[in-house]
Every structure is written in C-alpha cells, then in structure tokens.
C-alpha cells in the first residue's frame, strides 16, 4: 500500500488530541484553527479528490465521536471541504499546490466553507442569519486555519517526511 495513503491516518490521532486539548488554549473568542482540516486538505492535494473525501468522511466521523459533538456535523463539513479542495488537485503541480501561498488560499476557502457548514448544521438558533454565519462564524475560523497552514509551508521538508 502506498505510504502516502497511510500517513494521514498516522497523523490524525495526535492531531485530534492536539485539536481538543491544546488548540482551545490558542483560540480567540471561540475562533480556533482546525488542524484536522489542514491535514485533510493537504492530503487531498497530494492524493486527489476521492481520497480526500474518504478521509474527510472517516476523520469527521471519528472526530465527532471523540469530541462529544453532534455526530455527522464534522463528517459532512470535512467531506464537502475535501471535495472542494479536490478541484485544486493536479498530479503535476503537487509541490506548487502544497508548498506555495496557493495552499494558504485553498485552506482559507476550505476552512471558511467547513466552518460555515459545521456551524450551520449545529446551529439551533433561528436568529442567526446565513450572512452572519458566513461572515462572522465562517470566514474568521477559515482565516485562522489558513494562518496556521503557513507552518506547513515553512516546515515542509523538500523531500518529505510529511
């Protein structure tokens, strides 16, 4: 089996622990980066849309279970985010897509959509408008996630361990 397909699974567990135990410490007014989304987008850009959707779905399922959140919410939001990220997949441009500012842009787009869908599903308050959900609850976490995605570009080895 291709090593590239196993790596995201190995990274997922420590990242989930980090997401639940450490990321809250760096959240600002309930706006926090999504490390698992970074992992999903990164490996979607390396392995393609179908692979991305599958890991998005599985990781979302596991994350919903271990976080005590609404079962199905992360599954759906990660799957759709991976589907979007998959449009940027190009076998000949993997290095450019994962090691340039384009990666940050893709991450911002996917982070915004992910947060918007997750919040839209979880929301039970009819007072929150869709525009507010998108601008306030979608874009800001997307921005934070993409900022954290800079570390992937900075620390990405030339010929990858990651």
């Amino acid at each position: 089996m291709n090593w590239n397909y196993l790596k995201p699974i190995l990274f997922f567990i420590p990242l989930s622990v980090f997401q639940l135990a450490v990321v809250p410490l760096i959240s600002v007014y309930d706006i926090s980066p999504n490390l698992i989304l970074i992992l999903i987008v990164y490996y979607t850009l390396i392995n393609g849309q179908i692979f991305g959707m599958l890991i998005g779905f599985i990781f979302g399922f596991i994350f919903d279970l271990i976080s005590g959140g609404l079962l199905g919410a992360s599954m759906l939001s990660f799957t759709i985010s991976a589907f979007l990220a998959g449009y940027f997949y190009n076998q000949n441009k993997i290095d450019i897509n994962t090691a340039s500012l384009l990666f940050i842009l893709i991450l911002f787009l996917c982070g915004t959509i992910n947060s918007f869908i997750y919040s839209g599903i979880s929301n039970s308050n009819s007072d929150i408008s869709l525009i507010r959900l998108f601008l306030y609850i979608g874009i800001l976490p997307g921005l934070y996630t993409s900022l954290l995605g800079l570390t992937v570009i900075i620390f990405k080895p030339k010929k990858g361990i990651v």
């Binding site: 639940l20 809250p24 309930d30 706006i31 959140g69 979880s122 929150i128």
Partner: peptide, 9 residues
C-alpha cells in the same frame, strides 16, 4: 480536559 471550541456549539 478538552474543549470543542466553536462559535455555535
């Protein structure tokens, strides 16, 4: 021991 940080939930 852990938090699900989210604006909505």
């Amino acid at each position: 021991i852990s938090k699900l940080v989210n604006k909505i939930r």
